[in-house]
């Protein structure tokens, strides 16, 4: 899978309460959750985010609550991929299970700014900054995990087996 999109950059320890506050957890409709995605970190994010955009964040992205509403909200907002220095483990698992493409890439984070266009190749585990031309290497996921993400999540993957 390959994606090209505009970057929204966030800092370290972006928790799932900030990704989708509990006050909106009385639904799990992706479009409804997307209206409030990351609003406590950046109140304008839900209105300025566009389909195909990419989130770049520092360490421990998705820490805290196990709410699967967090990757659902990010996916609902149209985000194509999340690149982070590291992910908290429940979010990591939830992202793959719900078919939200993610990539852990330590070297890319400092060199990418909000507004940059980046190209992500999940098969190769590469991130290319189209502004600077620089390429950053990450460890690609094993093929079965890529397949889960490509199929849109674990349940679709199980059903197709």
């Amino acid at each position: 899978m390959k994606f090209t999109g505009k970057v929204h950059k966030f800092g370290a320890d972006i928790d799932t309460d900030v990704i989708i506050p509990a006050r909106y957890l009385n639904t799990f409709d992706p479009a409804e959750l997307a209206k409030h995605c990351l609003e406590d970190a950046d109140p304008e994010f839900p209105t300025k985010v566009q389909a195909g955009d990419i989130i770049v964040a520092d360490k421990n992205f998705g820490c805290g609550s196990s709410r699967e509403h967090a990757p659902i909200a990010i996916k609902g907002a149209g985000i194509a991929c999340v690149i982070a220095r590291s992910f908290a483990r429940i979010f990591y698992r939830n992202a793959i299970n719900t078919g939200l493409p993610i990539l852990e890439c330590d070297t890319a984070i400092d060199a990418i700014n909000s507004g940059d266009e980046v190209e992500v190749d999940l098969d190769l585990g590469q991130v290319r900054n189209l502004r600077t031309g620089e390429v950053y290497e990450a460890t690609p996921f094993p093929s079965f995990m890529q397949e889960i993400m490509a199929k849109g999540g674990l349940i679709n993957y199980i059903k197709d087996k």
Binding site: S66, R67, E68, I90, R93, N94, N97, L154
Partner: peptide, 10 residues
């Protein structure tokens, strides 16, 4: 350990 809803479903 905590998991998400899809893992719970499976």
């Amino acid at each position: 350990t905590g998991v998400g809803s899809t893992d719970m479903a499976a």
